[in-house]
């Protein structure tokens, strides 16, 4: 089980790093997907080798669906941002501050 957990942890850290360093908005969203999938692997691993049982499997199914929904909304917002700013660089989103 530890191997699975390690993979999940690596995915999680990669996802966070991706979110924090990518300047492209779409890239940031991909980072989010990585984080969520890291958690999913955890759930499935705990379900298979731990005590969590079927709950874990169901959890990850829900998360997959939710991730799709969230990505849809996020992409729509990113598109809207592009329409207004003609760029998708998140560093350009710095008018609101202080």
């Amino acid at each position: 089980m530890n191997a699975y957990l390690a993979v999940a942890a690596v995915l999680f850290v990669c996802g966070v790093m991706c979110m924090a360093t990518k300047r492209n908005g779409i890239g940031v969203l991909m980072g989010v997907e990585l984080v969520l999938n890291g958690a999913n692997i955890n759930f499935v691993a705990f379900s298979k080798y731990g005590l969590l049982g079927l709950d874990g499997q169901i959890f990850s199914l829900f998360v997959i669906v939710l991730a799709a929904a969230e990505a849809a909304v996020a992409l729509a917002i990113a598109l809207n941002f592009y329409n207004n700013h003609l760029t998708i660089d998140v560093d350009q989103a710095s008018e609101l501050k202080n």
Binding site: A20, T21, K22, V28, V90, D91, Q92, S94, K97
Partner: peptide, 13 residues
């Protein structure tokens, strides 16, 4: 000077 969003996200971690 630029890009506060990524720094926000970094800050979560």
């Amino acid at each position: 000077q630029t890009g506060q969003l990524r720094q926000y996200v970094m800050l979560i971690a």
